[in-house]
Nucleic acid binder design. Structure first.
Lengths: 269, 269
DNA sequence: GAGTGGTCTAGACCACGAC
DNA sequence: TCGTGGTCTAGACCACTCC
């Protein structure tokens, strides 16, 4: 890696450092390789460790680096494309929906916020299925799927809560309930959805599910599911922003490959 | 705002501080209001200024705060929902596509990366239209739309480059060219698209267009446009992550409202 | 000029992982 | 036990905005 001193430039040191490190990553390192440690790097470039860390923070936010306490700083693998369009992976609960794994299920009265999102009354019973998504052996997302009981009421009852059972069987029971809700949702026949995507940060519990520290940047996907022309459920999916590229494929001509922004937009000659 | 000392907790000070500040923002401040300055706040909470700034960094990343040099730290307005689905806003160049404003247009041989994304040969002529998107009086995105000349060749030529003209007219000429490319693209009839969304950071020039400092987190949307069953163009749109919530509405049942993640996922009783 | 956030320094100690 | 990244401190100076 180049060891040249930073030249005097009008831009901040940490930003220049980022550029230098980015080039080094692209040209001299490969995925999974460990960089020199922070104390060495800061000494090499003649900056304080905090300044170097500011540059590494940027590169980590861009998904180019992964830092592991006790291990070192590694060059990250390219982001994995994760299909989010339900048309391809199947609606929640459908047999084609293989990418999600149900974790548990809770049932409670709707909070004011949740009631507004679902278009129901506050306190109305809502089932919440918690799922995690695995792609290429990695946990990439968690999801909370909120299904009003009134949605499921549109179907003949199957079985929701078996009741009883020992404390040790509680987890398996919750799994059962999750599957039951999903099964009934499938039977109802979801026929449309609309989504929004925004940047967020993972809080304690969610961060733990994603195996990341709190404050990890995430892509928050909010989805509305329609059935029989009416809002049937809403889901909040939280994807790791460092490792995921969300894809919304309808036509799917070829693999979507990101293109770097055009460096200059000068007038055509 | 509460002035209580931080209690001894296993979590980092900056993270606890973020939680305290977040509650204060939600309960005691309103949009546009300025918080006490960083030196006051750090003294009030008994932490170093750098630690306080770490907490503010988080809240800024979440889009809850806006910091302006020389002014202060303000409570941010809620994110604006920006429709990204072309079915609603019209394909590029169509008369319904009112949200974008063409800035300029360049024509050059395809780089290796661009050629791969477009499925054409390296060096083949590609027209690049640069546009900016304005929503509610704010610049929210920039875009580079890459259209291979071979795509436009499918149409009878209209006029691409008038040539000549003084240097002062160069900008207007580039505008003309941008419009011409868009017009021809419209005539060709785009009939499908697929997209991907990922987190990125704005570099110098792009950051300037978005009126933000370099390193600003952005949502990078890569779009493929299909015409006549073949890849006709690709676009890279860069949205300000702090102010934007991207919406992909197909059915559009009701306004998509984000739902906070479920705080706990305990076993159902 | 006064006040703000932005950058940078040179240290210190802690938590975690590997040996 | 040692090396790693993570947190935190107490200062300094700069760039920008407003008066």
């Amino acid at each position: 890696m180049a060891t040249a001193q930073l030249t005097a430039v009008p831009e901040p040191k940490y930003w220049h450092l980022r550029t230098v490190l980015l080039r080094a990553i692209d040209t001299e390192f490969s995925t999974g390789q460990v960089l020199p440690n922070e104390r060495d790097l800061s000494a090499r470039f003649g900056v304080a460790r905090a300044t170097l860390r500011q540059a590494l923070d940027q590169l980590e936010l861009e998904g180019r680096l992964v830092r592991r306490r006790g291990i070192g700083t590694l060059v990250a693998a390219p982001r994995v494309g994760v299909p989010v369009s339900r048309r391809e992976e199947g609606w929640p609960g459908s047999s084609r929906d293989q990418s999600w794994r149900a974790v548990d299920c809770t049932s409670a009265g709707a909070s004011e916020q949740l009631a507004r999102a679902l278009g129901i009354a506050v306190g109305e019973l809502v089932h919440t299925v918690r799922r995690i998504r695995v792609a290429q052996g990695q946990i990439v997302a968690t999801e909370s799927l909120h299904v009003p009981d009134s949605t499921l009421k549109l179907l003949p009852a199957i079985r929701l809560s078996a009741g009883g059972g020992t404390a040790g069987a509680a987890q398996a029971e919750s799994d059962d309930q999750a599957r039951s809700v999903l099964r009934r949702l499938e039977r109802l026949g979801v026929d449309g959805d609309s989504r929004s995507v925004e940047l967020g940060v993972a809080e304690a519990e969610e961060a733990a599910l994603l195996e990341r520290p709190p404050g990890t940047p995430v892509l928050v996907v909010t989805t509305q599911y329609a059935a029989a022309g009416r809002l049937a459920a809403v889901g909040t999916s939280t994807y790791r922003a460092d490792t995921c590229r969300l894809t919304f494929g309808e036509t799917g001509l070829v693999e979507v490959t990101p293109v770097a922004a055009v460096p200059a937009a000068r007038t055509a000659s």
